[in-house]
Design a binder for these strands. Structure first.
Ligand SMILES: [Mn+2]
Ligand SMILES: [Mn+2]
Ligand SMILES: [Zn+2]
Ligand SMILES: [Zn+2]
Lengths: 157, 157
DNA sequence: TATGTAAACGGTAATCATTATCATTTCATT
DNA sequence: AATGAAATGATAATGATTACCGTTTACATA
């Protein structure tokens, strides 16, 4: 159960406590489910998976915890336009590379891509600096998504 | 009322009819409100403004029309993370330049920026081609947003 | 190790933007 | 004017997320 992922369980634990939160069995289970997920899970997806290993969990706690984890940067929350938020472990905690998303508007399939990511990130950095200066914003985050139709969706006419 | 904007009312009219839809007073009023808007309006914002010049309009028609206009590319629909969708006239119909958004997570203020847009668009084009080939996607759209804290929000501690 | 207290919890009800339904009206075409 | 399709507005339904509240738990302290 308590497996290692990214910078590891201990690192997440410290980060949570460092922000004044407690580490509980429920939170541990949520991190565990996220670390094993290969897709971008909704709160209810997470609820169902956590429920198997920790049956007492309530959906409310899932939302509460995800909100905290998003706030302190351990998870990323996304809206891919399907009416519900989706979550993934952040790079820092998952050990995955920085990536952006390609979304099929037909079936909802999502591709994590890292192609051109270095160029993208370089331009983003430059843009952030420019915008920051010009508009007096402290920029904390960015979002890049491409939308289109995947192969099987376009074959399905 | 029926004023000129972007490629003009006639152009929008033709585009709507070209997709098999009818041009009605309500739709005209919605386009009119959008063309005069200086912000990114929610469905209810639009409803209230249209209601002044066309009191019989129902909120349902606002949603229906916006959905159609989004689908045929006359308006863009955005989610800036405040629980409701926001709309703006698309470049083609508004005459505005291609731009992306800078969002203040404190007060919700949104800046349209065009800085570095040529470089951004060039990279996007290249990335789109690469992703398209590699993942067999027909890419139709992209989304770029920066999130941060505006000056007055950071002064307000 | 026992205890006090704030944090976290689960269940339930409430919220609220968006959609579905459906009877009525309007439009384009003849 | 008659016809059928598209559009409309009022209303109800939906569904993800949040608010509330009484109970339980984690953990700093003694
Ligand atoms: Mn991802
Ligand atoms: Mn804009
Ligand atoms: Zn697809
Ligand atoms: Zn602000």
């Amino acid at each position: 159960m308590k497996q290692e992922y990214g910078k590891g369980y201990q690192w997440c634990h410290r980060k949570i406590k460092g922000h004044g939160y407690r580490m509980t069995l429920g939170r541990e289970a949520i991190l565990d489910v996220l670390s094993q997920a290969d897709e971008h899970l909704s709160a209810e997806d997470i609820y169902m998976r956590v429920h198997k290993i920790y049956p007492n969990i309530g959906l409310t706690s899932i939302y509460r915890t995800l909100d905290i984890l998003d706030t302190i940067g351990l998870v990323n929350k996304f809206d891919f336009g399907h009416g519900r938020a989706r979550y993934e472990l952040a790079e820092s905690s998952s050990g995955k590379n920085h990536h952006h998303h390609l979304v099929c508007t037909g079936c909802g399939h999502i591709v994590d891509y890292t192609d051109f990511i270095d160029e993208e990130v370089a331009l983003l950095k430059k843009t952030e600096e420019g915008l920051s200066r010009k508009y007096k914003f402290t920029i904390t985050n960015h979002l890049i998504q491409f939308y289109g139709v995947c192969e099987s969706c376009s074959e399905r006419k």
